[in-house]
Structures are given as structure tokens and as C-alpha cells.
Write a protein that binds this DNA or RNA. Structure first.
Lengths: 229, 229
DNA sequence: TCGAAAAATAAGTATAGACATAATGCGGCA
DNA sequence: TGCCGCATTATGTCTATACTTATTTTTCGA
């Protein structure tokens, strides 16, 4: 591999040094200019490689402070959040959707807090069931800031999930993944036993500092969320 | 904001056009050279901005094919996979660790498949409990390729989780998140009711094409895995 | 001795120019 | 008609240089 020095090759070599402890955990590595000289490439190439390693958690960089190998590595995994219809169709199953409820209501405290909303602003509450091959797949329970989706936006044919992803600008938010037992209502809607272990996701989304929506997605038993790195 | 054109400002403007549908879903956007001319900056600056948007799922780029806005956006979330000790300590709790079993055994079929192992190679099976403030936090059930961690590596004081992350080079693998009911054995170890809904992660890791380890982490009830974007 | 100002340092970023690479599509040949 | 290969094109990347910014270290004065 003697040809042109690519940023990938620099990254590979840096990774090798990290793994062989030639660059030990907690230690500082040479600066970009020195590495560029050593590898016989431009500093920008080294920069790109080290920046990439930093976003993956293999290195920590600070201006003037230099670049160091973290003592306790924190690997970063990326995974894709598709809309539910795509998730179902990607499994080769037939997707269907059923709107169960859609009304204005005062949100529970937990939702108010998560969205950092003042007072008792009523929010739009949407409850809908996503189906795969006519079996319950996922229950969507969502609170929407009516500023972003007024009553003229109907969720009877397109899910709120899909409408929001397609129509709004997201700039931040949080996720939580957890397991929850099926209560009577969940068991009925998802057609499973009471107490069944269900995979669930809480998500909040903001546009700048404006709260858009908080949602709980509860999946039917057996659902696995997968990703590769 | 009239000063120098930064790649962040180009990204912000591009994102605005995507959200306002000035660049509609499914449509192709102008090429880098044209945008650079329009914004009065170098093509590299535009490249950096669009590349960043592509990794976040807002754009799709193909050589020669140009750059287009995806019809069905797939948002990408990154989250951090810390070692369990860090996870516990990050919550301000006292971490403890107990090794329950460590022996060579033939792996179950599911593990053999996940690691793409031929024949009936015996693997090292490690079962350990992670504790937070002396309460069960997470059960680790792991199968390790003995090539990477022979018997001289002891897991009685440091967890396999931590040893592997610190000592081995990872180059790929997969994750699956799901909910599972506590069976008798899980209920006993995690000190919860039988049938309780537990959050679990299956993970496989490889070094190039070499299988390293497959692990199931099953968390005590109430665990939430959180991240922000 | 303490603290504030100045210098030094390393990463972050912008630029212009060049070449590489992967698709695409078109034209020509069988 | 059908297929191969070449020209075209947009992104991908490297280089060399310059300037910016955050942060640490040094220096110098009170």
C-alpha cells in the first residue's frame, strides 16, 4: 500500500497504533503537522482522519490541548430511525394504519416536562395503530404542539409519524429505549397477553427551542430493533 | 451573518431549502460547483456541508448521479456505548461486579450462526452480574472466541465487557435491542418477578472477519437507554 | 507572590487547483 | 436490435497555503 496517502489509510494506521498501544490510552499523540510530515501528506488529510476517529470515539481532540487517546473508550453507534411504514415494508410485510383517537387535551405532567411547556397548554393527542400483515405492529401515542400541526392536518390516512418527519424541521430531541409490561389497554390494542414484555421508545423532538412533539411507540411482542456498525 | 461563508452556514442554508421544499423531496439539487458559485465560497466548503447532511440522512449523494433529497427521510441517531461500569458510575451509583460462571462449552446454534462459526468449536462462556448500589443492574451472558481471550485472561476482577473493550480492536458487528420476559433464572439473578419486562441487548463483534464475541446484556426492570440528537 | 496581559500552540476551517472514481448515456459497430 | 466502449459529469479526495480560534504557557508588572 505505497500509493497515494488517503485519509482512510491515515485513519487505519492511527487506529492500528491505538490498538497496539503504540499510542497508549490516556496518552497524547503527535500533532497534525508532525503526522503529516511523517506520512508524507498534507495536514488536511491527517485532520480528516483524526476528526473521523474522534467522532467515532477513538480519540479526543481539543484546540491547543492536542489529541489524546481516551482512557475509557466510549464507542459510538449510529442507527437509522426510519418511519414506521418503511420499517414494516422493509421487512417485506404489508403495512396498514388505523387512527384510534385525535383530540385536544391537557398533556400529562411527564409530557409537559419533557417538552418544557409552560402552564396547561392543551396539546393535540393522537393515538394510532400501525399494522404489519394485518397484525398489530406498533402503537403510537403522541402529543403534538398544535402550532405545528393544526386541525387542518388530518392523520386518518397518513400517520402523524410520517407527516411530521416529512413536513417538519427537526433540530434536536431525545430518545429513551426501554421495556414495559403490557397493561390492559396495551394488551387489547396490540392483541397480546397482559404483562407481556414490550419494547418501547419515548422520543421528544424540538425545532430550535420550540417543542414539537413527544411520542411513545410501543411495539408488539417479538420486535427487535437492529443496527450494524 | 455576512462574514465568511462557513461550511456550517452552507449546511444551515441547505437545510432551510430542504425544509421549505425549495429543494423538494425526490428532487435533485444543484451541483457543488454551482452552489459554490452561488454562495461565493470554495467547492470544498459546499462539499463538507453536503457531506455532513448526507451522513445525517437529509441528503443522498451518488457520484455522477448528483445529490438529491430523499423521498422518505431516514434520520440517523448516534448514541454512545459505554462500558457498563461507566454507565453505572455515570448515574452516581456504586459499581460492583460478580463473576457467576466461566467455562468452555459448545455454543448454542443461535450464537454459532451470529458469529458465523463453522462446526462445533467450543467457546468460552462467561456469565456475570453487574451491580449498581449493591442491587442487580445487568446480567452479562457472553460467548468468547478463545483465540482472543485465552484462559490466562481472568474475568474475576475485571468484567469481560471492560476487558474486551479495552484490549481488542473492533471493526464491525451488530446490535439488537428488544424486550424479554424474565424466566426463572433471570428472575433469580436480577431479583425481580418472573415474567417481568426486561430490556435486553444482543451484540456481536468482529475483528475484520474474525468473530470475537457474542453477548446478551439483560437489564434489571426499569432500565432506560437514553440518547440525544 | 499573585494576577493580568502577551505569546505560543494545535486544532478548525477556507481556498484554489488538480486529479481520481463511479455512473450515466450516447454513439458506433456487429 | 443489441451490446460494447468511450466521453461526460458530479462527487470524492489530496495539496499547499493562509488565516482563525480556543487554550495553555510564559512573561512581566503591581
Amino acid at each position: 500500500m505505497d500509493g497515494p496517502v488517503t485519509w482512510q489509510s491515515v485513519r487505519a494506521e492511527a487506529l492500528r497504533r491505538i490498538h497496539t498501544r503504540e499510542w497508549p490510552p490516556g496518552g497524547q499523540i503527535p500533532n497534525e503537522a508532525d503526522l503529516a510530515a511523517e506520512f508524507g501528506c498534507a495536514r488536511a488529510t491527517v485532520n480528516r482522519a483524526l476528526r473521523d476517529l474522534a467522532t467515532s470515539g477513538y480519540l479526543e481532540r481539543r484546540r491547543k490541548g492536542g489529541t489524546r487517546v481516551p482512557l475509557t473508550p466510549v464507542r459510538k453507534a449510529t442507527f437509522e430511525i426510519a418511519i414506521i411504514r418503511q420499517d414494516v415494508e422493509g421487512r417485506g410485510q404489508h403495512y396498514d394504519y388505523r387512527l384510534l383517537a385525535d383530540r385536544l387535551a391537557p398533556p400529562p405532567l411527564a409530557v409537559r416536562d419533557a417538552l418544557r411547556l409552560p402552564g396547561a397548554t392543551p396539546l393535540r393527542m393522537v393515538r394510532a395503530l400501525h399494522l404489519a400483515d394485518d397484525a398489530p405492529f406498533c402503537l403510537e401515542e403522541r402529543w403534538i404542539n398544535p402550532t405545528f400541526a393544526g386541525p387542518e392536518v388530518r392523520f386518518d390516512t397518513i400517520s402523524a409519524n410520517e407527516w411530521l418527519v416529512r413536513n417538519l424541521a427537526f433540530s434536536g430531541g431525545g430518545f429513551a429505549f426501554y421495556a414495559t409490561p403490557a397493561d390492559a389497554s396495551l394488551a387489547e390494542v396490540l392483541m397480546c397477553d397482559r404483562g407481556a414484555a414490550l419494547f418501547a421508545i419515548d422520543r421528544t423532538t424540538f425545532s430550535d427551542a420550540e417543542p414539537i412533539t413527544a411520542v411513545t411507540l410501543t411495539y408488539a411482542p417479538g420486535y427487535r430493533m437492529v443496527t450494524r456498525i
